[in-house]
């Protein structure tokens, strides 16, 4: 089997693997947000950045190849990740103490893993109303990080294309494919794959808020880097 090096470890890979796929199989955690093993890599959050032969690339979209020298955990790489995470935190409204997803949130857990204590950039406090029109689910756009996991799940698994991103650059935001833009007017269903894919607290089931006490939530006992497989959400 061909191999490459990651943090001084020899990693085997199958031809066609990305660095992320080969590392995951070897039980090595590379922090990530928009990558999910079930879906085509998106390469947009850049949190899975690694240094390859001195260049920074996203590990979820870079093919593994012979003789790569990959750095995953180093102060410089973690610093890049921290800055990306800080920007995500200040661009939305991520009020962890008031969020149902806290303790089971990938953004929160990844940021804690990468050593972010608090964002150092200015908070933007955008105004993003909540969509509570659907009987079973709500959308809290305040926490959206534009990872497009729901877009991919709804399009590629559910075959519904309920979600999409609209606008460009800083204006990019999640939209619902229905006449009035409300989830309740779409054919979204609680059994959709898109209903359980959100890594943050945007797509949330109703009638069960805070049902898991602190200490029993997804990442409370086992931090994200030790949950090698993508957690069930």
């Amino acid at each position: 089997m061909p191999t490459f090096t990651l943090d001084q470890q020899t990693i085997e890979y199958n031809p066609g693997d990305t660095i992320m796929e080969a590392a995951s199989r070897a039980g090595i955690y590379i922090p990530h947000l928009c990558y999910h093993p079930e879906f085509t890599p998106h390469g947009s959050c850049r949190v899975c950045v690694v240094s390859v032969n001195g260049r920074y690339v996203s590990s979820c979209t870079t093919p593994a190849s012979e003789n790569l020298d990959v750095t995953n955990i180093s102060e410089a790489v973690q610093q890049h990740r921290k800055q990306l995470l800080e920007m995500l935190f200040v661009e939305g409204n991520h009020v962890c103490p008031a969020c149902e997803k806290s303790g089971a949130c990938t953004l929160q857990s990844v940021a804690e893993f990468c050593g972010m204590l608090s964002p150092t950039f200015s908070f933007q406090y955008p105004n993003r109303p909540v969509d509570a029109s659907h009987p079973d689910y709500m959308l809290d756009y305040n926490r959206c990080i534009n990872c497009e996991l729901c877009v991919r799940a709804s399009r590629d698994v559910d075959g519904k294309s309920i979600f999409g991103l609209s606008g460009r650059g800083h204006e990019a935001h999640l939209v619902v494919n229905s006449e009035d833009g409300l989830l309740g007017s779409s054919n979204f269903d609680k059994n959709d794959r898109a209903a359980s894919i959100c890594p943050v607290g945007v797509i949330l089931p109703k009638h069960q808020g805070f049902n898991k006490p602190i200490g029993k939530r997804l990442f409370d006992e086992t931090p994200i880097n030790e949950q090698m497989v993508e957690p069930q959400r």
Partner: peptide, 12 residues
Amino acid sequence: ALNGGIPAMRNH
């Protein structure tokens, strides 16, 4: 103190 927290939810 760090990010405005609950009080900053009135910023909307």
